[in-house]
Nucleic acid binder design. Structure first.
Lengths: 207, 207
DNA sequence: AATATATTTGACCGACTAGTCAACTATTTT
DNA sequence: AAAATAGTTGACTAGTCGGTCAAATATATT
């Protein structure tokens, strides 16, 4: 009951996702978000008690979007080497799209926000940490399937290796953002992943 | 000639280095830097035309400090495997010190600033990119010495591998910052580096 | 039609933002 | 001692910050 919403909350979340990704959390103001979303400030604080709360909800939206894509890429129906290869390609394609749209390589929105805000806002930090855990789970199951296929030695510390993979990918994306250049993602991302896993050259094809 | 300085500029640079590292570029105000450095705002703008200019000089100071340490760690007099091992240990020790002093894992100051500011301030971005080039040079020469020792195959793409190493280390430090936890740097940093290089287990000791 | 309720609006707040400037002080040069 | 100069100060902008609030509006329920 009551007046029906005109999608104000969703507009604010989507606008915040874009602006915080393009610039940074502290560089974007509530006023700017409102103006770009064509929403008045009063409406903003009707839906969100603070700017940080909006950021959290923006991350939730990003997490859901990520999950849909990664559930497909890391589907157990795929050979595990294909999962890693597809992921590398997806990262590159996605960054290309965003760079074309925003005029600059923007890197990983979660890592960017997490790195900026770590130690200042615990709720946001925990959200970012949560995403790390989720991504690590994808890598872990793919690594275990690689072990089951006999491509990787069973003595592998799967949890540690998943963290290493995650670190490497995050680092590559930050480098791409700083250099505003995707070419070395194209050159190094996939190979770096397989190097880290320790996959021999003849074990990198699905069959 | 004229009045002698009381170390105002140096105080501002050191204070800015600390505050920007602990918080972030946009989260720190000129007022806060001045207050902590016990310097009046007029003096700030006597030495720096803008906040961004101070940040650049703060990075220069950080670069020089880094160079002194890395020139020692990556001295060609050391066996190349020892160089990488020492670097990993230095990163961990340094992060431990800072975390104890600042109350939070702070990661890499250059990567943090670069990731936050990329695409907004070109001068700062270029400074960060310059540091990447310099660090990569340390890794490259160590990798070539590993090849000369016969521990690594001569077909290795040294430039690409150096970039991969750099990405991995940056990523590990950002993870440590987000989780506010250095234990998995201790667990994974050194091993991840040698995994990426592709050094076999029996090739990871200096002799 | 009247009421209850959810949404929207725009004016408003005090604190803070980066940056300016003229005056003041301490030092060296002449 | 006087002049020139470099460093320091504190008061000052004009604009922006995150956030508040009472009133207006539109919809669903009664």
């Amino acid at each position: 009951m009551g007046r029906t919403s005109t999608g104000t909350k969703e507009k604010l979340i989507e606008t915040a996702r874009e602006l915080i990704w393009r610039e940074s959390y502290n560089a974007v103001s509530v006023d700017e978000i409102c103006k770009r979303a064509d929403v008045k400030k009063g409406s903003f604080y009707h839906y969100f008690p603070s700017k940080a709360h909006l950021a959290v909800e923006a991350m939730d939206a990003g997490m859901q979007e990520m999950k849909d894509i990664y559930d497909d890429i890391f589907s157990p129906t795929r050979p595990p080497v294909e999962r890693f290869r597809l992921m590398a390609q997806h990262v590159i394609d996605h960054q290309k799209e965003i760079a074309a749209e925003y005029g600059h390589v923007c890197g990983c929105p979660f890592a960017g926000l997490g790195s900026e805000i770590a130690g200042q806002n615990d709720v946001i930090s925990e959200k970012v940490a949560d995403i790390c855990v989720k991504k690590s789970a994808y890598y872990q199951s793919a690594l275990r399937d690689l072990i089951a296929e006999g491509r990787v030695d069973a003595s592998l510390n799967v949890e540690a290796k998943a963290n290493e993979l995650f670190s490497f990918i995050i680092g590559q994306m930050i480098m791409a953002k700083i250099w505003n250049d995707l070419t070395f993602l194209e050159k190094n991302l996939e190979r770096g992943i397989f190097d880290l896993i320790g996959l021999k050259m003849n074990m990198r094809e699905a069959i």
